[in-house]
Design a binder for these strands. Structure first.
Lengths: 221, 221
DNA sequence: TAGATTGTTAATCGATTAACAATC
DNA sequence: TAGATTGTTAATCGATTAACAATC
C-alpha cells in the first residue's frame, strides 16, 4: 500500500508550495512560525495549513507553532526528496535542453541518468554533463540502469510508442510535456504529471481578456 | 464587468482541454458528438461537460448532441482566441528560447511583439523572427506598442522590479515561469498564470514514490 | 499559572454527479 | 410519433473554513 493512501490531490499539490516557502523562511533565519503567520505569507488560511499538515502527522506544538527547519525537513521526507528516483529525459530539443540546464533534479527527488534523442544531428551533443544518446539504445539502457521516471519532451506523435516502450522497460513515473494523454491509456499503473503549456497560455488568454474588458468598462462609465 | 463573472476557475481550466479535444475530433472528421461520447474520450462525466458548457450558453441540441465544429468555435470565442493580445517575452535564456520556438502564440490568443533580455551577449541575437532587444528600452517600448501581456522567463530575483515596471507600463497579464508570487502583491488588478515547474516535478516525486512503494509491497506479499 | 496555538471536530461552502422534464 | 439527448434542478460528495477543547 502507499504510505499516505487517503491524502487528496489538492493537499498533495500544496506540499511543494509549503516546502518552498519554508525554505525561504529558513534562508531569512526565521526559526518558528504559527499557522496564522504562515497563512499570511503563503496566501492560504491558517485552518487549511493545519488541516493539510495533519494528514501526515502532528508537526507543531500547542502554544508555540511550527519549527521552520523541522517542518521543512518533515515535508521533504513526506515527498521523499532524499530518494533520488533514477530518471531519463527523452527529446533534446529546446525544451529538453532548457529543462536539463535549469532544473535542479537532485533537490526535487530525482537523479538524471541520461538524455535520449532520435535525431542524428543532436545525438552526441553534450548538455551539462550528459551526452545525448541514441533512442535506439533505450531498451538496453532500461535493462541495465533501471530508470523509474521519464521526462517527455518529444513531439506528441512520437509519444505513444516511446511511452509503451518505457513502461515495458519498468518506467513508472512520467513528467509529460506532450499532449498525449497517458492516464487515459495506463490508468493507475503509472504516475503522471502533465504540463500543458498550451492550455496554460489559453487560460491566461481568457483571464486577461476578462480583465481588460472590465477595465475598459470602468473607463467608459 | 467581465463577460462571464460567475464562472469558477475549475470550469475555466477545463475549457482549453475541451477545445483541444474538439480540434482533434474535427481533424478526424467527426461532425457530431453527445456529451456521453465526449465524456468517454476526454475522461470526465457527461454531466460535468453539460454543466460546464451551460455556464456559457446552450450549445447543444436535444436528441442530437453537439456539433463538433461549432462547439469548437464557440469555446474559441469564449476564450477570445481571435483577440490576439499583444505580448512580450522577457528573458531569452533556454526556457525563453524554447517557448519562443515552440509555442503557437497566435493560436492561443496572443501576438508576440518582442523579446527582451539584459545580457549584452544575448541582445541582438535572433530567435525566429524576433531580435532580442535590450531591457533598457522596455519603458519606451511599452509606451509605443502597448503590450498587454508578458511572459516572464527571468530569474526570480529580477522579477519584482521588472513586473513593477511592466504593470506601470500597462501590462495586465503575466505568464509567470518564475517563483515570484505576483498575485500576493498585485491582487486582482492583474491576471496571472503561474507555471511552477519545480513544484510540478516535486509532486511527481511524491506520486512515483507512493506508486513504487505499493508495487514493492505487492511483490513481497 | 496564563497566554498562545495546535490538533481535531463540526459547519459551511463549492463542485461534481444524478435525475428528469423539456424538446429536438 | 418514438428515441435520444440536452438543459437544469436536486442530491451527493469533497474540500475549505470556523470553532474549540487539549496542551504546550
Amino acid at each position: 500500500m502507499a504510505k499516505y493512501p487517503g491524502v487528496s490531490p489538492s493537499v498533495t499539490r500544496r506540499l511543494p508550495r509549503y516546502y518552498r516557502f519554508l525554505g525561504e523562511l529558513m534562508k531569512k533565519g526565521v526559526e518558528r512560525i504559527s499557522s496564522r503567520e504562515f497563512a499570511e505569507i503563503i496566501g492560504l488560511t491558517a485552518s487549511q495549513i493545519r488541516q493539510d499538515l495533519n494528514c501526515f502527522g502532528g508537526f507543531g506544538q500547542q502554544g508555540y507553532g511550527y519549527n521552520v527547519a523541522s517542518l521543512h525537513n518533515a515535508i521533504g521526507n513526506i515527498m521523499q526528496l532524499d530518494q533520488k528516483t533514477p530518471a531519463i529525459l527523452i527529446g533534446a530539443g529546446n525544451l529538453g535542453i532548457a529543462i536539463t540546464r535549469h532544473m535542479e533534479f537532485e533537490k526535487r527527488g530525482f537523479q538524471l541518468l541520461a538524455i535520449f534523442d532520435s535525431n542524428p544531428e543532436i545525438i552526441g551533443r553534450k548538455i551539462r554533463e550528459w551526452a545525448v544518446q541514441d533512442s535506439a539504445g533505450l531498451d538496453a539502457f532500461c535493462k541495465e540502469h533501471q530508470p523509474k521516471a521519464a521526462i517527455l519532451c518529444i513531439p506528441r506523435t512520437a509519444a505513444p510508442a516511446i511511452v509503451d516502450q518505457l513502461v515495458r522497460g519498468g518506467v513508472r513515473g512520467f513528467w509529460n510535456f506532450t499532449h498525449y494523454d497517458l492516464t487515459m491509456v495506463y490508468g493507475d499503473s503509472i504516475a503522471v504529471e502533465n504540463v500543458h503549456l498550451g492550455d496554460s497560455l489559453m487560460t491566461l488568454s481568457f483571464y486577461v481578456n476578462e480583465l481588460l474588458e472590465s477595465e475598459q468598462e470602468k473607463q467608459t462609465t
